[in-house]
């Protein structure tokens, strides 16, 4: 039956809505191969329909299968693209190596370009009123207080504050820090706010 390989791919995407999977090179290659075969069969049969009129129905069926495969592949890529967009907002412009290897080369190119675009846009904001850009990925929630208490959940190493102080972020240590400076680390899951 047609279009079964491609459904595997789609189901995989559906199962893990919240995370990104390894780019499925192998399955995609198989699907494209299937499409090449279908296309060739169709070309042969379409050329011979002049003698044998009854073949046109078969051509139609295969054509539908081709369109279906195309649709599923596009949907797979599109959904991954949306997730990669989220990666930029949640992991920042530099991806950790274990996330980086989930992307295909083409996707990584796209990520870099998206990242550059976003950075250029953020730099351009507020130029007319004398600011030098705003980081839109910060302050996603209104801050309730200037300083917050945080717990460090994984070893991060040295961290320099804006006033020049350097603190050591070691696992299970508590700190009292300006909210503006530690929120990025909280979003990356290195710190945790203590309420």
């Amino acid at each position: 039956m047609f279009g079964e390989k491609v459904i595997e791919l789609i189901k995989e995407a559906e199962r893990n809505r919240g995370t990104l999977d390894q780019f499925n090179d192998e399955t995609i290659r198989q699907i494209i191969e299937e499409m090449h075969v279908l296309f060739k069969l169709n070309m042969n049969d379409a050329n011979s329909t002049t003698e044998n009129k009854s073949l046109w129905t078969t051509v139609q069926v295969r054509h539908s299968a081709l369109e279906r495969n195309k649709r599923c592949l596009l949907a797979y890529l599109y959904n991954r693209m949306n997730k990669i967009k989220t990666l930029r907002w949640e992991f920042g412009s530099v991806l950790p190596p274990d996330v980086r290897e989930l992307l295909s080369d083409g996707e990584y190119d796209w990520f870099s370009k998206y990242s550059t675009n976003l950075a250029t846009y953020m730099r351009s904001l507020g130029e007319d009123i004398g600011y030098h850009g705003i980081d839109l990925t910060e302050n996603l929630r209104p801050p309730k207080s200037l300083y917050i208490e945080v717990l460090c959940v994984s070893d991060h190493g040295k961290f320099e504050l804006e006033d020049g102080d350097v603190i050591m972020l070691k696992k299970n240590t508590r700190h009292f820090l300006p909210a503006s400076e530690c929120q990025t680390l909280i979003r990356k899951g290195i710190l945790q706010q203590i309420v």
């Binding site: 919240g18 990104l20 979003r187 899951g189």
Partner: peptide, 13 residues
């Protein structure tokens, strides 16, 4: 008050 939290995709990963 809404405490700052880890981003969902980071947490899921």
């Amino acid at each position: 008050d809404c405490p700052l939290t880890t981003a969902t995709m980071v947490a899921n990963h």
